[in-house]
């Protein structure tokens, strides 16, 4: 597989088809019922602490589990005009964190311009990197660019071994990821007292839940240091959400029903209280507003009767909006919970 679902004219490339699968699943209770049982329904925002901007679906990889259906064949890219609208919206909030994601965000031709604009505003920038783009032709100076601006790098590495990593992310991805990590270490990322933060992201390489974050972080630190001499700061465990290409994998492998059951059985109300959508606003490549990157990929724009485009951004109303939910939300509330910064509950 080296093309997106969209390019392959796959039935799940039609977003309604994904939503029908998720909402017709009688095997698990509707997610809203579980929230109601914990007095969390309707789920409401608690503020806007994180601006997550998806700057495009273009990526140099075609990972089997990608919830964005990203790839080299995806041409949806945020324009500078839309970025300017995002910055105007950011100025309306006290959000201290701007999380740049994609696709491979670095592939947006205005990525560096956007980073500089956000840094000039004194906000903390996270580059959600796939690592291999950092060693791709034309991006050789990206590590230094990020280091010079003290950009936090949060990078995908689903396991500390080649076999699992390549099975999910493609041939030779592990070897190139290790090279990128060494380059990041060389400019100071993840090194003691450098002030440059390098976090890694674990996500399961199949239809199972992530391990406890602290335990697997210790394994990563020991094994990456021993095998490759690599240092990093923290490991985030993220659960695979049953949408897009991971949904395709689940259905094709006969794991969809058992996986949904597993997520439902592991539902944790403590994690539900702390889901990241409550303190995040997610902006799509075309300026549409969403509760999170997963709702974005399911094309579920912010609800509550609020304007759905960043040009009409209403910070005060969005900060207390009702969150749109669905059965895919079970992915963020299973076990220790899951967010873009890893587990949320013990």
């Amino acid at each position: 597989m080296n093309q997106s679902l969209l390019k392959r004219n796959h039935p799940l490339a039609v977003i309604d088809a994904q939503r029908r699968v998720l909402e017709s699943d009688a095997a698990v209770p509707a997610f809203g019922e579980r929230l109601a049982a914990a007095d969390l329904h309707p789920l409401t925002a608690t503020g806007i602490e994180t601006f997550q901007i998806n700057v495009g679906k273009m990526c140099n990889q075609v990972c089997k589990h990608c919830h964005v259906d990203a790839g080299p064949d995806r041409t949806e890219i945020m324009t500078r005009e839309t970025m300017e609208l995002c910055l105007a919206a950011l100025d309306q909030t006290n959000a201290q964190v701007v999380d740049l994601t994609g696709g491979a965000p670095e592939m947006n031709p205005d990525f560096r311009w956007l980073v500089d604009q956000i840094v000039a505003r004194g906000r903390r920038v996270i580059d959600r990197s796939n690592l291999t783009i950092l060693v791709a032709q034309g991006y050789e100076d990206m590590c230094q660019f990020l280091a010079d601006r003290n950009i936090e790098v949060t990078a995908s590495l689903p396991y500390y071994l080649e076999s699992q990593t390549d099975a999910q992310r493609g041939d030779h991805v592990f070897e190139r990821s290790i090279r990128a990590l060494k380059n990041l270490n060389a400019v100071g990322y993840g090194m003691p007292d450098s002030g440059l933060t390098l976090n890694l992201v674990y996500n399961p390489t199949g239809a199972f839940l992530p391990p406890k974050q602290a335990g697997i972080e210790a394994d990563y630190k020991r094994e990456l240091r021993r095998r490759h001499g690599i240092e990093f700061n923290s490991l985030y465990t993220i659960t695979n959400i049953p949408i897009s290409r991971f949904l395709d994998f689940l259905i094709e492998s006969g794991n969809y029903g058992p996986y949904m059951q597993k997520l439902s059985n592991a539902y944790n109300p403590e994690a539900a209280k702390q889901v990241m959508c409550r303190s995040t606003i997610s902006i799509g490549w075309d300026g549409q507003l969403y509760d999170c990157d997963f709702n974005q990929m399911l094309e579920i724009t912010v609800g509550d009767g609020l304007p759905t485009h960043v040009r009409d951004f209403d910070a005060a109303a969005l900060a207390r909006r009702e969150i749109c939910i669905g059965n895919h939300c079970y992915g963020c509330t299973a076990g220790s919970g899951s967010s873009c910064t890893g587990a949320v509950a013990d």
Binding site: P204, G206, F208, L209, P211, G215, I216
Partner: peptide, 12 residues
């Protein structure tokens, strides 16, 4: 098998 994978073990 599921339990080991969910505790972070690998096939090796």
């Amino acid at each position: 098998t599921q339990g080991c994978l969910e505790k972070g073990s690998n096939l090796e």
